[in-house]
Design a protein around this nucleic acid. Sequence first.
DNA 1: CTTGCTCCTCTAGTCGCTGGAGGAAGTAGG
DNA 2: CCTACTTCCTCCAGCGACTAGAGGAGCAAG
Lengths: 140, 140
Amino acid sequence: MKPIAIGELSRRAAVKVPTIRFYEERGLLPTPERTEGNRRTYGEADVRTLRFIRHARELGFEIEDIRALLDLAGHPERPCGEADAIARKHLADIDDRIARLTGLRQEMKAMVEQCSGGDVRECRIIEVLADHGECLSDRH
Amino acid sequence: MKPIAIGELSRRAAVKVPTIRFYEERGLLPTPERTEGNRRTYGEADVRTLRFIRHARELGFEIEDIRALLDLAGHPERPCGEADAIARKHLADIDDRIARLTGLRQEMKAMVEQCSGGDVRECRIIEVLADHGECLSDRH
DNA sequence: CTTGCTCCTCTAGTCGCTGGAGGAAGTAGG
DNA sequence: CCTACTTCCTCCAGCGACTAGAGGAGCAAG
């Protein structure tokens, strides 16, 4: 297994180099070994971990949650109730966000469709934004 | 029309007091008049403007976009193509976010359901997050 | 050996707030 | 009129999660 440089890790995990260093500083990634010339070297495990982190971030997990999950992953003998709790919390969260965004989409769509292409005077976009009472949805 | 204090404005527009001052500093709210004792005083127009801002923020508009919209609103003689463009950009954005979140929801749901309640050893949550290839969706 | 890329550390900036310190002004009750 | 309480003022620091830049060193290919 040949060592992986930070740039390659960056490409393979689709995470920018400074962000990798940031994750290391925040304790999400283990302190990597260094070459003689003081460069970080990684292995395949780090690629997986970093993908895990990126993926979790895309799912909206906060750094703290991710650290908790990684801690858990590092201790396979512990029951996974905690990981489950974190994930469930996020499921609820995601449902909420989808509902909100769907409502907002309705409004935004209506706004765009009602725009007559004329002056701002008769532009519904600004009107609708100005008066919350005109919203199509009350989900927010 | 009696003057409105910042606290009342805050309650009526559902925007925190420091956030109001922040918006003022960022040029989203006009510099308000002051009382003899140096307190900001607002009017009904400010309530509407602030609601406009809050609403736009909830829709995910950035401060810069909001400033552009407000500028437009202040010049009713200009054509509203720009407002339309901003709103359209956001509609596309929202659609994208909904699609992504829906995919993520699937995954998250599968994760939670597959959690056996046993050890981390057989916990799907960590596995699924660790390996992007197991995703149910390719939308992200 | 030189060119050009990657990497190092460190610091500062981004966005959109949020909170606190320390003090002045306004208000309601006695 | 005095006191107590609330609201407001300014200024400054901090949050999360990066992102960007300066200034310098290491390394691989031609």
